[in-house]
Nucleic acid binder design. Structure first.
Lengths: 226, 226
DNA sequence: GTCTATATCCCGATAGAC
DNA sequence: GTCTATCGGGATATAGAC
């Protein structure tokens, strides 16, 4: 059955965006030509310019289509686990799983966007808005965790979210460069320190929780390479 | 006094490197042409290829000329202050001072190099070695701070250095995008939480800390092969 | 809206004079 | 070692047919 013109137009636009997302993440934005994006989407470069006007327009449209997804989804899907430490571990492993190359591609693209934002005000505006939304969301999440357990967070939720994201981002960067230097346990430990989770900083007053630190949950063996 | 040929050669090399450093930091590596580097150094592109063979060779030579400086210098120069909190504040402010645009340029170039390292093994080797050295140095520094005060760091020195650098890097990124979102006080607070400095996380009972796990330092020579 | 063809520009690298 | 001139390639973006 044939499509209407509107359907084809919409599909072309969607295909171009999807192709751009994959290629940009894999090779970097500057390294990907408009022709390459179009070819990967089964179209030609003319379609790109008809839809987005320029390569920059394509990039901005791509960012706009990411308003809600990515990090928000990540935080939402781990909301099922109960213990704060388990939550932290889940967040970190989803973010920096070296076996899953998707996360590596995303973090690479995230950093390239940050770098571009530093020199391109148009991109900066979009990224800034997205960051602020994600921060508010994770602040709510963190507030819930810290009140559930009797924690002594290093700051109030909004600022705590900044600290947590900073640590996650920096750890993911170092793991990407030297996978052996950042173990899962270290990441959880650092996050727990920021949240002030009982068990590692204040063992004096364990009202209800059990302060076992290291004998508990899944401990994957960090695989070395070579 | 005229120069000898060797002197002129050395000066040309130095000028090319200096020009490349400035332009790369300002505009990004890919955005700077070889001609632009040469012109900024008062030479022509032929000089670049005579000295470095390619643009990539220029980049690697530039990285090599930065073996010791940058972060090591930064950590060393703040070693005078006494209180750990003062040290933390000094490190952070030197790293992320928004009024000083040098630090902004520096961190931008630093991130671009990280991004490039993720896709270019040659660059990755250099960055990895430099990171490892800086980590060892700051680990020693941190060990001194934490033992001087009665702190409960979140991890042993080498790993603590990873956490601290991660937090600093992530905070600097967020401050670059949203300067208002990251206050100096927040940064110091987060760092203090990682170091387990008394006064903010464990006001109750700073009892005996766990014994140092690793007191000897293995001086492994970073090997690089290609 | 999409394709083909092309205009225009700029980059990295090389060749050869000096 | 440095400069001038240039080649070859690939990029963004446009023009016009359909």
């Amino acid at each position: 059955m044939s499509q209407t013109q509107q359907e084809r137009k919409a599909e072309t636009r969607a295909r171009l965006l999807a192709a751009a997302a994959g290629l940009f993440a894999d090779q970097g934005i500057d390294a990907v030509s408009v022709d390459a994006v179009a070819e990967s989407a089964g179209r030609t470069s003319g379609a790109v310019y008809a839809h987005f006007g320029s390569k920059q327009g394509l990039l901005l449209a791509l960012l706009d289509s990411w308003k809600d997804s990515v990090l928000t989804v990540l935080l939402a899907e781990v909301a099922v686990t109960k213990s704060p430490r388990g939550q932290l571990a889940a967040v970190w492993e989803n973010l920096a799983d070296t076996t899953n190359d998707d996360s590596g591609r995303w973090s690479l693209l995230e950093h390239e966007l940050w770098l571009r934002a530093a020199r391109d005000p148009e991109v900066a505006d979009v990224i800034r808005v997205r960051n602020a939304e994600a921060r508010r969301f994770s602040a709510r999440q963190l507030a819930g965790w810290t009140t559930a357990s009797n924690a002594r967070p290093a700051a109030e939720p909004e600022q705590l979210a900044v600290l947590v994201k900073a640590l996650l981002t920096g750890l993911a960067m170092q793991r990407h460069l030297e996978p052996g230097a950042v173990t899962d346990a270290l990441a959880v430990q650092g996050l727990a320190a920021l949240l002030g989770l009982p068990g590692d900083v204040a063992p004096s007053k364990p009202s209800t929780t059990k302060p076992t630190i290291r004998s508990n949950h899944t401990d994957e063996e960090p695989h070395h390479e070579h």
